[in-house]
């Protein structure tokens, strides 16, 4: 591996090492932590976070941010639940309409950012308010889904790997999204445009790349993945709640940053984000396993981890620029 290549891979490698250290450390400390059952459960419980974090990675790679994904989950989950419960539509339609809603909101945000040059955090903040408002407007109560097809073929389905370890539908969707996200970011023109815009928007424009179209595409993708996260959340909990996933957008940003994606854009990877989601999941599970630590320690530990990773990134960045200038 060349030196430059090594330097580019360093943040992801550090994340991978930290993930393994945390995972093994927790495994040595707690009984039953290293079982396949706990491992696959991680995929289920973090599936919606992981899905929106993939979308967030694309947005951050262009140098933007999407704060609307958490409330998008709440909005689409309550929408799906109410469609199934009160309007008795087929579950696939009930989960499909919210997906269209997500695409529409994402597209609108993309147009506002790309065409009218409004700041991304402002546009998506308005999106956050809008989605949460729509969600509360639909219903303030938790709606349980009783539909037979929904239960039999989505929420209660699990595939046995061993007799105790199971893989659920949410985790399969999560893994698929990560795989497609990695492919799109690394092997398609769209992915290359995303990196180019994040690296230097002016250069990308001068090269004749479709900057606006790509930006609109990225926000539409994030809106779609937010809605898909909502669908997965609905399947995972078999219910819809308007206030669910409040603040999830920040976990998604944290996952991307911990995974080595630079917030200034142009640099990062979907695989890194997967590791970031893994680290957040291990911290949460370990604190739950301990039982003595209060839940607020999760927040403090995640904050401290986030800070440590940003300092490492800054250190690498400074070392790199020093080499260029000397």
């Amino acid at each position: 591996m060349s030196r430059a290549n090594l330097q580019a891979k360093l943040p992801v490698m550090i994340t991978a090492v930290v993930f393994l250290a945390l995972y093994l450390g927790a495994g040595l400390h707690f009984d039953n932590f290293l079982t396949l059952r706990v491992f696959f459960n991680q995929f289920s419980t973090n599936s919606f976070l992981g899905i929106v974090a993939v979308g967030m990675t694309f947005v951050i790679l262009t140098g933007g941010i999407d704060l609307s994904v958490g409330s998008m989950i709440g909005c689409t989950s309550i929408m799906a639940a109410s469609l199934m419960k009160f309007h008795h539509v087929h579950p696939l339609v009930g989960l499909g309409i919210p997906l269209l809603f997500g695409i529409l909101i994402g597209y609108t945000q993309g147009v506002l950012v790309a065409k009218f040059s409004l700041p991304p955090f402002l546009v998506t903040l308005a999106g956050l308010f809008f989605c949460r408002g729509v969600a509360l407007f639909i219903s303030q109560e938790t709606l349980n889904i009783e539909d037979e097809f929904f239960k039999k073929s989505l929420s209660e389905v699990s595939f046995h790997i061993t007799d105790k370890a199971t893989v659920s539908v949410p985790s399969i969707i999560f893994i698929l999204v990560v795989a497609v996200g990695m492919f799109v970011s690394l092997r398609t023109p769209f992915g290359r445009n995303v990196f180019a815009i994040g690296g230097n928007r002016q250069s990308a424009e001068l090269m004749g790349l479709p900057v606006r179209k790509t930006l609109i595409g990225v926000y539409t993708l994030s809106g779609f993945l937010g809605a898909l996260g909502g669908a997965v959340f609905t399947i995972f909990t078999s219910s819809g709640n308007a206030t669910s996933a409040t603040g999830l957008e920040l976990d998604a940003i944290a996952a991307a940053v911990i995974g080595g994606t630079l917030l200034s854009g142009g640099y990062g990877s979907v695989f890194g984000t997967l590791l970031g989601v893994g680290i957040l999941g291990v911290v949460q599970t370990a604190i739950a396993f301990d039982g003595n630590l209060n839940s607020w320690w999760t927040k403090i530990v995640i904050g401290a981890l986030l800070m440590a990773f940003m300092l490492v990134q800054k250190g690498i960045e400074r070392a790199a620029t020093r080499k260029v200038t000397v």
Binding site: I65, F121, L250, I253, A254, V257, L263, S264, N294, W296, W297, T298, K299, I300, I302, G303, A304, L306, M307, M310, L311, K314
Partner: peptide, 23 residues
């Protein structure tokens, strides 16, 4: 001093701060 992006730099305290308040 560290030149971190303001969104994440303040995100730290947004996440951890509430934890500290609960502490």
């Amino acid at each position: 001093w560290l030149g971190l992006q303001p969104i994440v730099a303040t995100l730290l305290l947004m996440v951890a701060g509430r934890g500290i308040a609960q502490l």
